[in-house]
């Protein structure tokens, strides 16, 4: 499978996430679109690691080339889990204070 197909697919998922962040006003859905973008990047990292590994195996270099990218994806998932817990706590706190999760109410820093 050519690497370009994976890049096109991940770009499409990432762009859908960008459109969601730009057009929706519900804070939870904006947050979910950020998760979608994060997953698109993860999939692209794994695809590039397999591409690099395939090239290295063809050239007869080490068998474990490209394993770093998969470790990186693992750490990205770890950090995303921590980020989601903090972000959802912030959304709950925002709902307690304003009784809404509309992100357009979050403009107090503007003035």
């Amino acid at each position: 499978m050519p690497i370009q197909y994976y890049i096109y697919f991940c770009l499409a998922l990432f762009s859908i996430g960008v459109v969601g962040v730009l057009t929706r006003r519900n804070a939870i859905i904006v947050f979910m679109c950020i998760e979608l973008m994060l997953n698109a990047v993860n999939l692209l990292l794994v695809a590039f690691s397999k591409m690099y590994n395939g090239l290295a195996v063809q050239n007869g270099v080490a068998n474990t080339a490209g394993i770093d990218a998969q470790i990186f994806v693992f750490f990205i998932m770890v950090v995303a889990a921590a980020e989601v817990s903090i972000g959802l706590a912030i959304i709950v706190m925002m709902y307690r204070n304003t009784h809404s999760i509309d992100i357009n109410f979050l403009n107090r820093l503007k003035n």
Partner: peptide, 30 residues
């Protein structure tokens, strides 16, 4: 979003280092 998508796709289409690179599916042990 659509212009971001078309711009990046046209960039990837022109990228010479990616030409002929394939991802081996269903194999590899890493």
């Amino acid at each position: 979003g659509g212009s971001f998508l078309t711009l990046s796709i046209s960039l990837v289409k022109q990228a010479m280092p990616l030409v002929g690179k394939t991802v081996p599916l269903k194999e590899g042990t890493i």
